[in-house]
Structure formats: structure tokens, C-alpha cells
């Protein structure tokens, strides 16, 4: 990998890191449009983050250093995971054979930290949320692997950088059905991993019914800001994954490539908003069926490739 690539991939990473909070705003705006409301500005989350960063923090007397370290671990794991994706459509800053395992491992690291922070408070609400989070993840993680397996088999490459980069353009020509199925599975995964409808409703205000929001009930001030930002980054990361699978950008110049990337992210965010508007939340015990269904799609794509 040459230095030009490092420069362009870091530029793309900067786009992702900056645009991430806006994506949540786009989801909210889409939902508002469906509901006939005006809705909060797209940039609301930036303002919220700014506000929270200047506030003080209240820690529960039950918590230990694990609670304080968790936001840092969550943010670091997601930032490091985004370093593994070729966000400029060409190459990623860090790449090695089998780095897809590292990608999944980093997501798991962030989840472990968040779940432990929830349990650290001793609150039964947060324990409940933590339990649901790991339950959803225990179905979602194999699906992520199945999706990656589909990409590996379609492109015959073992780094995220290569299999989402130039090799993907050629693969789309021959393996269209499989790659479309993988992209679809990743979209369901985005909804599940980011606690969106139909898996969880981020807008609900009842602790008993939530997954993600309830784990972070006790975080406040800058800690909460870091967690909110990390959540938006996670949504952006999955959206980026879908854009990279669905829109191969080989042959575009850097400017066009970044524009296509940012545009793709907005489209995915709007799609999330549409899903949230037209669907109700599933009963919790039906959620595994949805995710296993996504896994079946990815597996079918793999079977087409192994045939």
C-alpha cells in the first residue's frame, strides 16, 4: 500500500467520523417526514454532544473503574474497526490477512465493555438491557461472519481492504445474486446491531422495553457524549459496510468516490428511517427469527458461491 492510499483512506475515515452524528439526524428527519412533523434539525446530535461535553458527570456509588473505562473502550474499538474498512473504495489504512475476524472482534470488545458497564451499576434495568444486548449479538455475530464469508468466496480475497475494494467490482459482474443477498443480510444486521426498529425502538421511553438505551441509563456528561457519539459511529460503520458492498467505487477519482460514499451513507440512513416508520417493533422473542432469517439469506448466497 502506498502513501497516496493512506492519505485518501484517512480522508474517507475523516468523512465517516464527521458525518456519523448527522446520520442519526437523517434517520430522525425521515421518520418525521413520514409522520408529518418537522422534526429536529439534522445536526441536533452535534449540539447535544457539545452540550454534554461541557457538563459534569454523576457516577453511581455502586460503580467501579470498569464503568468509567467503558466509554473509552467502546469508542476506541469502533474507531479501530473503521480503520480496517477501505472507506475510500481502494484500500484501508490497516489491513492483514483475516482482518475480518479483527473487525468482528473489535465490535465484540466494544459490546463487552458496554454490557459490563451496565452490569456495574447493579440496576436491574441495565442488567436486563445487557442481557438482551448479548442475546441479540449472539445471533447477529454469526450472521456478520456469514456475510463476510460470502464476500471472501465471491472475491477470493482475505482482507477487508481487498474484498471490499477493487476486487468487488469484478465480483459483482459474476456473483450478483450472492452479493445482493449479503448486502441485504448486512442491512438487517445494521438494524439489529444498532438497536433500531424492528429489533429495538430507540425512541421509546420505557426502560423495561429497551435494549441499547437502557444500558446507558446511568452514564452522564462527557461519558454519555462519548457513548452517544460511539453509537452514531456504529450506525455509520454498518452503513459504510453496506455502501461498500453495494456500491463498488473502483475507477472513480477520490472526490467522486468520497461523494458517492457520503451519499450512500445518507441513503442507508434514510432507508433506516423508512423501515422505522413503516414497521412496528417485533416482540423480543421474535427477534432471533428475524436475525436467523438474515443469516439464512447470507447462507443461501454462500451456497450459490460454493455450488
Amino acid at each position: 500500500m502506498n502513501h497516496a492510499h493512506v492519505g485518501s483512506s484517512l480522508a474517507a475515515l475523516a468523512v465517516l467520523l464527521v458525518i456519523a452524528p448527522a446520520l442519526s439526524g437523517v434517520v430522525v428527519r425521515t421518520k418525521s417526514a413520514f409522520a408529518g412533523r418537522r422534526g429536529a434539525p439534522v445536526g441536533q446530535l452535534y449540539w447535544d454532544l457539545f452540550k454534554l461535553m461541557r457538563k459534569g458527570t454523576v457516577y453511581s456509588t455502586t460503580t467501579t473503574w470498569i464503568f468509567r473505562a467503558a466509554p473509552v473502550v467502546v469508542l476506541v474499538s469502533l474507531t479501530a474497526a473503521s480503520l480496517l474498512l477501505p472507506l475510500d473504495g481502494q484500500a484501508s489504512p490497516v489491513q492483514f490477512s483475516g482482518d475480518l475476524i479483527a473487525f468482528a472482534g473489535l465490535l465484540a470488545l466494544g459490546r463487552f465493555a458496554l454490557v459490563l458497564a451496565g452490569l456495574d451499576t447493579g440496576s436491574s434495568f441495565e442488567g436486563m438491557g445487557a442481557s438482551r444486548e448479548v442475546t441479540v449479538a449472539s445471533f447477529a455475530e454469526p450472521v456478520l461472519f456469514l456475510g463476510f464469508l460470502g464476500l471472501v468466496l465471491a472475491t477470493r480475497r482475505l482482507t477487508l481492504s481487498a474484498m471490499l475494494g477493487p476486487a468487488l467490482t469484478a465480483a459483482w459482474a459474476h456473483q450478483t445474486a450472492s452479493l445482493a443477498l449479503v448486502a441485504l443480510a448486512f442491512f438487517v444486521l445494521l438494524l439489529a446491531e444498532n438497536s433500531r426498529v424492528p429489533v429495538d425502538d430507540p425512541a421509546t421511553h420505557l426502560e423495561l422495553t429497551m435494549i441499547h438505551e437502557v444500558i446507558v441509563l446511568d452514564h452522564s456528561g462527557p461519558d454519555l457524549a462519548v457513548i452517544l457519539y460511539a453509537s452514531s459511529l456504529k450506525l455509520a460503520l454498518f452503513a459504510a459496510l453496506i455502501v461498500e458492498v453495494a456500491v463498488p467505487r473502483d475507477g472513480l477519482g477520490l472526490g467522486w468516490s468520497l461523494a458517492a460514499f457520503a451519499g450512500g451513507l445518507l441513503v442507508v440512513a434514510m432507508a433506516v428511517g423508512v423501515v422505522e416508520s413503516v414497521m412496528a417493533r417485533l416482540r423480543l422473542n421474535r427477534v432471533p427469527q428475524l436475525i436467523v432469517g438474515a443469516g439464512a439469506l447470507a447462507l443461501f448466497g454462500i451456497i450459490l458461491l460454493l455450488r
Binding site: 459534569g56 458527570t57 454523576v58 456509588t61
Partner: peptide, 9 residues
């Protein structure tokens, strides 16, 4: 920033 301690919510 200011810090406080309180029981779990």
C-alpha cells in the same frame, strides 16, 4: 468538569 456521586438510577 464537575463530578458527583449518587446511587444508581
Amino acid at each position: 468538569a464537575a463530578r458527583g456521586a449518587h446511587e444508581t438510577w
